[in-house]
Write a protein that binds this DNA or RNA. Structure first.
Lengths: 203, 203
DNA sequence: CCGCTCGTGTCACTTGGTGTCAAGACGTTA
DNA sequence: TAACGTCTTGACACCAAGTGACACGAGCGG
């Protein structure tokens, strides 16, 4: 009777467990603080074993950070999708705006995740690690786009770093304002400041 | 007969233990890799107990990272020492050059520390954490210096981020070149690229 | 000489994280 | 329906990073 589902039952179960784990972790961690909650506690509360928790997440930090990490992972691809005619500052601004805008829309959930991350050293460290990965992708994409030699030329690396500096600054402002500030507007401001360096004629 | 020493015996003993621990950790970690060495091993090799190790260092990462962290901790102070008449790009360049030049002079030791840090995720993460602290100091100092309101103005935060982006990029190049590249020259290049944004007329 | 403080070692403990294995749920085929 | 292979899970043991408590000994002041 029921048509064969596009995703198997097993896959849906897996997704269910992951969601439950994320949900539970989120609730407990925001309520009690990162260090005051053990993985055992999260797992028990979600109705699975500790071992299962680690089959879904690489670390305790991962549950929270993955939230943002997934958003930012696409930055490199966003940049690649921008027309080559666009000056770097505009292309980077658009690439960075995508995850930031997504944050703004996700509302409360994303806000609390960001606040937790920025205020918890362990989470912040993991987040910075992810950013470093994004930076490498961005840098490579910029080098390709502008046909620069990334081994001899500092520009791609610095431009990628500047874009992510803007990203971090905007995220911080947004977090500190409890979501009141507009991420996209802040991004525009930041890139207006960076543009003179980003778009300077080739050295 | 011997005059009362400026530093007490106890203090010198403490320094001795710390140096021995650092030395041992450095040797073992660079030889076998970060994950392949336990704290027990380092402590035993240095002739103390694991407990003592943790009385000197907050974590396994700390032994190595403190190396660089101590260098960079002074960046904020360096900036404060620069004349106010200097444009931001020059002042920041000098502030950042100090620890970088120190790296270049320390020779092999610093180089291997940096390479270990940049290639080991756990160490890299801790290092990024430290950098975030430096950035806050730098940002506050810039705001004071230029009389900008750090709550409303993105400039201090972004400028500090740019300076540290340059710092990181130079460190990476230096590390990848096995110490062949000149850190100070690289820093000059980097800041030449950033200057148009750093020194842009006030928004 | 006595007592004090400080650094250290020992021991026990918590917690993050992993390897292993056996048991159950599911999909497939006969 | 029965049998088979795969995937996921829980239970258990285990390792290593940290931490707290306490007892011991060396140096120092009275």
């Amino acid at each position: 009777m029921t048509s064969r589902p596009a995703v198997s039952l097993a896959q849906r179960k897996r997704q269910l467990v992951e969601d439950e784990l994320t949900e539970t972790a989120f609730r407990l961690l925001t309520a009690k603080g990162f260090d005051a909650v053990t993985v055992d506690e999260i797992a028990a509360d979600a109705g699975v074993s500790k071992r299962t928790f680690f089959r879904y997440f690489a670390s305790k930090e991962d549950v929270i950070v993955r939230f943002l990490a997934d958003l930012g992972a696409g930055i490199g691809a966003e940049l690649a999708a921008r027309p080559t005619t666009e000056p770097p500052s505009a292309a980077l601004r658009h690439a960075v705006s995508v995850p930031l805008a997504a944050c703004g829309e996700h509302g409360d959930r994303a806000l609390r995740a960001v606040q937790l991350i920025l205020r918890t050293p362990a989470l912040h460290a993991r987040f910075l690690e992810r950013q470093a990965e994004w930076r490498e992708r961005l840098s490579a994409e910029l080098a390709r786009r502008l046909d620069r030699d990334p081994a001899a030329d500092l520009y791609p690396r610095l431009a990628a770093g500047m874009a992510l500096t803007a990203f971090g600054a905007v995220l911080e402002r947004w977090s500190d304002s409890d979501g009141a500030a507009d991420p996209v507007a802040l991004t525009a401001q930041a890139f207006a400041l960076l543009a003179p360096a980003l778009d300077a004629p080739a050295a």
